[in-house]
């Protein structure tokens, strides 16, 4: 029940967003391209894969949390911080036009969240896989 009503709120917010689109520095596809340049330079590079990204996003990596602990199983839905309960706006670009439009912000949060979930930084390959997955998520 809760999920449906919040989904409607988000539809409303998204609709308003369309009429007043702010000027973002980058598009999510440009961010993906930047990640690809970094990943392609690494040994064992494989084409980014949404399926691998989804798997990575949804499983635990030896610690208490997975990405879904805060961003939920549905990246288009509003999330909730696992510790504090604070609402987190949807992480999928289809549901939140601000996502993946600022490389510095993207890298800052990958660093923090990967550290919390994996106890290390994510590789460019992992980041690219995750973003590829998030770009396939429909509202």
């Amino acid at each position: 029940m809760f999920r449906y009503s919040s989904a409607f709120v988000w539809l409303g917010v998204a609709a308003m967003g369309l009429t007043t689109l702010p000027a973002f520095a980058q598009t999510p596809n440009e961010v993906l391209a930047t990640l690809k340049t970094a990943a392609a330079g690494e040994p064992n590079f494989q084409e980014f894969s949404a399926a691998r990204g989804e798997q990575f996003f949804k499983v635990k990596h030896g610690k208490e949390w997975s990405c879904t602990s805060c961003h939920t199983d549905n990246p288009a839905a509003q999330g909730k911080h696992a510790d504090t309960g604070k609402a987190i706006q949807p992480i999928a670009p289809s549901a939140n036009a601000e996502r993946f439009t600022d490389m510095a912000k993207v890298e800052k949060w990958f660093k923090r969240n990967c550290n919390d979930v994996l106890g290390r930084a994510c590789t460019p390959q992992e980041k690219g896989d995750v973003l590829s997955y998030l770009l396939t998520v429909k509202k």
């Binding site: 510790d83 800052k108 660093k111 923090r112 969240n113 550290n115 919390d116």
Partner: peptide
């Protein structure tokens, strides 16, 4: 930071 990484530049 209370069990989370909250680093800033």
């Amino acid at each position: 930071h209370f069990g989370s990484d909250a680093t800033l530049d």
